[in-house]
Amino acid sequence: MKTSIGIKNENLAKVAEVLVKVLADEFVLYTKTRKAHWNVEGQDFYNKHLFFEAQYQQLDGIVDDMAERIRTLGHYAPATLREYLELTHLSEHHLETNDSLTYIKELLSDHESILIHLRENINNFASEFHDAGTSDYITGLMETHEKMAWMLRSHLK
Rank of each mutant, 00 (worst) to 15 (best):
R153Y: 11
R69T: 06
L29T: 06
D99P: 00
S113R: 10
H155S: 13
R153D: 13
H111Y: 14
G74D: 02
L156R: 05
E17A: 15
L29W: 02
Q43R: 11
G74R: 02
R82T: 07
Q43Y: 08
L29V: 11
V18Y: 12
A77Y: 00
G133A: 13
V40R: 00
T144Y: 08
L141R: 04
H94T: 09
N123D: 12
E17N: 15
V63G: 01
E17P: 00
E128K: 15
K2M: 09
A132N: 06
L156V: 03
P78V: 12
L87G: 04
H155E: 12
D44H: 15
G74M: 04
K14D: 15
A54F: 00
Y103E: 01
L50G: 03
N9H: 14
A13E: 15
G61T: 11
N9I: 14
T144S: 14
E92T: 09
A149Q: 07
L90E: 02
A126C: 00
F125H: 07
E120K: 13
A79L: 02
E143F: 05
G140M: 07
F129D: 02
R119T: 00
E146R: 10
G140P: 09
L141S: 03
N121H: 11
K157F: 00
T144Q: 14
K14S: 15
N47W: 09
E26H: 15
L85W: 05
S91H: 10
T31E: 06
A77R: 01
E106F: 09
Y137T: 06
A149L: 09
I7H: 08
E112I: 03
G140Q: 09
S91M: 02
E68S: 03
D64R: 04
D60Y: 06
T97W: 00
R82S: 07
R82P: 00
Q58A: 12
I104L: 09
W38A: 08
Y137G: 04
E106M: 10
K21T: 14
A16M: 10
E41W: 01
E10R: 14
Q55W: 02
D99G: 06
F45A: 02
R82C: 00
G61I: 04
H94L: 09
Y84G: 04
L90I: 05
P78N: 05
S4W: 03
A13H: 14
N9P: 12
Q55D: 06
N121P: 01
F27T: 11
E17R: 14
S100P: 01
S154T: 12
G133V: 11
M142I: 11
Y56C: 04
L90Y: 04
D131F: 03
T80V: 00
D64E: 10
Y56L: 09
V15L: 14
G74E: 03
N47G: 12
Y84C: 02
T102H: 02
D25P: 10
L85Y: 06
